[in-house]
Design a protein around this nucleic acid. Structure first.
Lengths: 350, 350
DNA sequence: TAACCCGGGACGTTTTAAGACCATGAACAA
DNA sequence: TTGTTCATGGTCTTAAAACGTCCCGGGTTA
């Protein structure tokens, strides 16, 4: 059932909006027993004219009856509404959840794609698409954008397609951090260059390992070339970062057991751009690396976090508590978990 | 799955059109491997510009890839097509069937509503709605319309709602025939008056029984009042008639056993406006009654037949072979049967 | 009976879709 | 190598649809 909608959404991107709108109108008419056009328009916050177009359609479909005293739902309309209810629930459910998360943590935007990244590669792709769309929504023509690595970011880069007739040839994509000992495709460097190519922008790479010894850090810091690119990175207006589970990231970074134990001992649950966060969103561990620093993130105008899957819910939630996110892209599985935790928190003080 | 599609058809009738269009385009691109805009536009009979709008959208959805050599379907597009196939079948199946029936019997229009009248009252209602819509499509402001009786016609009358801003106050609705010994709601007289009222037209009634003795026929024929209304009936520009199973109609008319046996013996399968037809569409039995005669039907401009349900498929088919129909409104159950029979016919000569 | 709200009509404005052309570039055949 | 063909993508103009807004006659209600 739900599946069909997802399929159609690809061919009819504005299907959901229309469906929601008409459902809402029909629903409102049902609730109101009988209601006039102007009153209805006001209560739904629509202009009279567009409402009229919709009600004319509903009438021609036999879903409502229009009389001189106003509009009322027909039997067919009532039946349709019944059939539509479960669909509408899930349709509006995510909206509500987006709004809840948004207001709770003061974000400017939250996007939840239906499904679960962990179980479906399609959902992961959708997550990437949503991220790409969100990025294009905030991207200006001469921006500098710092991106981290990770498979989700890689997917996002793949899904990034330049909008028709808009030039980003003065924009710069840079990696937020150095390279991890991982496959090429999900390196921050790779992602920065892919994104740049896809939208017709420029890119700079940071050729240093993510994890540095004190010595190496000092000596590399003196390199003028590296210094320059780090300077660019730190002045980014936009950061797009994945969010990782702390434990998983220690493994991916191949940290030694002592360090892993230390990080775990500090209660770290989330990792992003080289910092480890505990459940309260406090930084509990910092890695000595080149690239973005905590203070840069604080002053960055647009911080876009992107991650999905139930297993990452805790980590995402920690990042939200950290409080620097502006836009969150996640999936239903993670969002539902986060919503649950928000409810628990609210109930505790009672 | 199918269910949701039906719901959407009600709430999003316009989106279904675009869904079809985009599916067709995507499908064609898939079949063509790689194809240019102009070539594709020509093969789909669209102008280049509107095709371009669609392909731009398909591209932005990541369903096709546009290169300098032309357009080709992407992996995601191919997957989507697979998923969409069963849906498209039901979306297009009926259209194809309509066209097949239409061309086979030289009709001007065939409308098939999804479902089965016999099993679902909703389908019957839809049949009525479709009939009403079709009638309004051919109705002029000063027409005379003859209608028969029957439950389907009654439903059609109920679903008839006057189109916005069009006056039929010079139109006349008349019954095609006299009254049957049946319930009031499905009398031709009742239906004619209901329809007339609903579109703001006039009506005349024919107060004679459907079945007449020779004597009665002669004497009533001399009545000037009846003569006048029969004259109007016979000059109708439009006839809307139900189609009945022959056997069933003999029962409804309460014919005596001898007559029933006679009609059956003649191979009658269909009944409409008082005539019985065999499988080949030949009139095999005529009832002595007032109202429309065969020769009137021959010269009538617009003959609209409306009936549904698998059980009536044979009868409908016989009427099509009779060859006087212009518009046929039926349901999926009957149409599928008819389609099957057409296929058999075509294959026989091979 | 007066005030109010209804649907439906009308109209000017704005936005969107469509049509028509052209520039440019890759592929291909001579 | 060069000319031709067909592709995309851009732009300009025009036609049409959508929209905001106001008004009118009619029915309902206080």
């Amino acid at each position: 059932m739900r599946n069909l909608l997802e399929i159609q959404k690809q061919l009819l991107p504005d299907l959901m909006e229309t469906l929601k709108r008409r459902y809402t109108i029909l629903h409102q008419i049902m609730l109101s027993d009988i209601i006039g056009r102007r009153t209805l328009a006001a209560s739904l916050d629509m202009t009279e004219r567009v409402l009229r177009a919709e009600t004319d359609l509903l009438k021609s479909q036999g879903l409502i009856e229009i009389e001189s005293v106003g509009m009322r739902i027909s039997d067919a309309g009532r039946r349709l509404l019944d059939l539509l209810e479960p669909i509408a629930k899930s349709l509006f459910g995510l909206d509500d959840l987006e709004e809840k998360i948004r207001t709770t943590y003061g974000l400017s935007k939250v996007i939840i794609v239906p499904g679960d990244c962990e179980s479906s590669p399609f959902t992961k792709r959708e997550l990437g698409r949503a991220g790409a769309k969100a990025l294009l929504g905030v991207l200006r023509s001469d921006d500098t954008i710092a991106v981290t690595g990770g498979s989700t970011l890689a997917e996002m880069a793949d899904q990034l397609s330049p909008p028709l007739s808009h030039s980003y040839k003065n924009a710069w994509f840079v990696p937020a951090r150095g390279g991890l000992g991982e496959s090429m495709e999900i390196q921050a460097n790779t992602i920065a260059s892919t994104m740049a190519k896809r939208v017709g922008a420029n890119y700079r790479l940071l050729h240093v390992p993510d994890l540095l010894s004190e010595d190496a850090y000092q000596s590399l810091g003196l390199d003028s070339n590296i210094g320059e690119i780090v300077g660019i990175i730190r002045r980014s207006r936009i950061i797009v970062h994945g969010i990782g589970d702390a434990l998983e990231m220690t493994r991916r970074r191949n940290l030694d057991e002592a360090t892993v134990a230390e990080i775990q001992g500090e209660g770290a649950v989330a990792e992003s751009f080289g910092y480890y966060f505990n459940e309260e969103g406090k930084v509990v561990h910092t890695m000595l690396t080149m690239g973005l620093r905590l203070e840069d993130i604080m002053r960055t105008e647009v911080v876009v976090g992107i991650a999905g899957g139930k297993r990452k819910a805790k980590a995402i939630h920690a990042m939200l508590r950290f409080g620097q996110e502006d836009i969150l892209i996640t999936d239903e599985a993670a969002a539902v978990e986060i919503g649950r935790e928000i409810d628990n928190e609210v109930q505790l003080p009672l």
